[in-house]
């Protein structure tokens, strides 16, 4: 039992840079010994549990460069933006329900008020709430190091449980996606053990329709594989097709085949397969209805 949730005992140096350049300089200098501190709702717990023991913490909460919130041809959300800023921003835009529902589902206000979009992406959890809806938006992650900036499609961002493509000297600057064309709509559903909990399964859907025909379809799921994942065969089966009950059922069946869930303390592999199909049906129904308007 080398865990203590009452105190942090590992020593580290705390830096709170005021510019992104300064922050990237620290990361370049310290490499794997550094950790980026944003809201801290995940990192501090990991440190208490002994899963991470950085020697340097770089607090990025003061960096204005991470706080963009832009809605033009692209929607750009700075990585340092707290959920509680992003939620009203999205609600103000009146679409992007999937991402808004994912953020709202986190629910615990004490977390929404400090946790950031970048943090949720950065911890690389396959059960994280925001990646699936962002994947249905074909979002990309803007990543910077002291030496370069690159844009990584979100679908290539996760590499395994808790693992992402970021190099130790890189930082997530923002996540961005193209503004929805008229008629596109999205939805998000998740299952948890209690109202405030890590997800058992999540599913996000984004669709466009022409009458009863689905003209665009994105489906992504969380907590059903080593990374958040797109259900591509299901998407392909639906896109360009007239949507009826059998099409949706077929799609749900493909999703169940496409995912690779495991047993864990939250639920079983079998349950996840069954629930993924149900969540898809619910999320799809909601997005499909929204796309009508």
């Amino acid at each position: 039992m080398t865990v203590n949730t009452r105190v942090l005992i590992n020593d580290f140096t705390y830096h709170v840079p005021s510019t992104l350049a300064e922050a990237l300089g620290f990361l370049d200098q310290y490499g794997e010994d550094a950790a980026v501190l944003a809201g801290g709702t995940d990192l501090i717990i990991q440190m208490k549990l002994g899963r991470r023991s950085p020697k340097f913490l770089v607090d990025v909460s003061k960096l204005e460069e991470l706080k963009h919130l832009e809605a033009g041809e692209k929607i750009l959300i700075g990585a340092g933006r707290r959920y509680m800023d992003v939620l009203p921003f999205l609600q103000g835009l009146g679409r992007y329900h999937g991402l808004a529902e994912a953020i709202d589902s986190i629910g615990k206000l004490q977390v929404l008020s400090v946790a950031t979009v970048g943090g949720n992406l950065g911890n690389g959890s396959p059960a994280a709430d925001t990646p699936p809806p962002l994947m249905t938006y074909d979002a990309s992650v803007r990543v910077r190091s002291a030496h370069q900036e690159r844009v990584v499609p979100l679908r290539e961002f996760h590499t395994g449980p808790g693992a992402i493509v970021l190099a130790p000297n890189e930082i997530i600057v923002a996540v961005e996606f193209d503004a929805f064309p008229d008629g596109r709509a999205s939805a998000f559903r998740k299952l948890t053990r209690v109202a405030s909990d890590i997800s058992k399964v999540t599913c996000a859907v984004a669709v466009e329709r022409a009458g009863e025909t689905c003209t665009h379809c994105r489906i992504a799921l969380g907590a059903v594989g080593p990374t958040p994942l797109r259900a591509r065969s299901a998407e392909a089966a639906l896109e360009g097709r007239e949507v009826d009950a059998s099409a949706v059922e077929e799609c749900a069946r493909l999703i169940v085949e496409e995912i690779s869930p495991i047993d864990d303390i939250r639920c079983s592999e079998k349950y996840r397969r069954e629930a993924a199909g149900v969540l898809f049906r619910d999320a799809f129904a909601s997005a499909w209805e929204r796309a009508k308007c």
Binding site: V3, T5, I45, L49, G107, R193, V194, A195, S196, D197, I198, I265, R266
Partner: peptide, 17 residues
């Protein structure tokens, strides 16, 4: 214990439940 003694995995009902 599979929950490790943590409330992360020993869940209790909330007001919303």
């Amino acid at each position: 214990m599979t929950c490790g003694g943590m409330y992360i995995d020993y869940k209790l009902y909330t007001a919303e439940d």
